[in-house]
């Protein structure tokens, strides 16, 4: 299933796709994008790599196993939900904070953390499924 064109294309495309996904994730709150799409795009990137170089290579280039990504994603989303509980607000209330110097003021909130969790889960789900199907 692999040809040298595909292999080269995949290696070039992979980092670009991941970068694009991070971009989608971060800007998701204000412009089209978000955790679901970002997760799917990252998954596509690794599936592409899997087609080109095989499952082993794809697994190796992923810093954590998709199986762990699955659980940690859920945990991250849950943490985002629980953070307001510790300051006495209802579960999943959004908390916001201004970070950075005044000129480059960045607004950071738990919804972003939640979206990151969603993204992890989606990547984990897709890659767990495809990797184990292919290995089967």
């Amino acid at each position: 299933m692999s040809s040298s064109i595909l292999r080269t294309a995949a290696r070039v495309l992979m980092p670009l796709l991941v970068l694009f996904a991070v971009f989608l994730l971060v800007r998701g709150h204000n412009d089209p994008g978000g955790g679901f799409v970002a997760g799917l795009v990252i998954a596509v990137a690794f599936v592409l790599l899997m087609f080109a170089d095989g499952v082993e290579a794809a697994r190796r280039s992923l810093p954590v196993s998709p199986w762990h990504l699955l659980g940690s994603g859920l945990l991250v989303a849950l943490t985002a939900g629980l953070m307001p509980v510790f300051v006495g607000r209802p579960f999943l209330t959004a908390l916001w904070a201004h970070l950075g110097p005044e000129r480059w003021d960045v607004l950071v909130g738990t919804p972003l953390l939640f979206d990151i969790g969603v993204c992890f889960v989606v990547v984990g789900v897709v890659l767990t499924m495809t990797f184990s199907l292919v290995e089967d």
């Binding site: 998701g28 978000g34 955790g35 999943l92 959004a94 909130g109 919804p111 939640f114």
Partner: peptide
């Protein structure tokens, strides 16, 4: 309220985040 301009995403991760969870 939610400091976001993409309404769909705001619904998913803030207003209805429990459903998303």
């Amino acid at each position: 309220l939610a400091h976001g301009r993409n309404i769909v995403n705001v619904i998913l991760v803030d207003f209805r985040a429990f459903d998303t969870l």
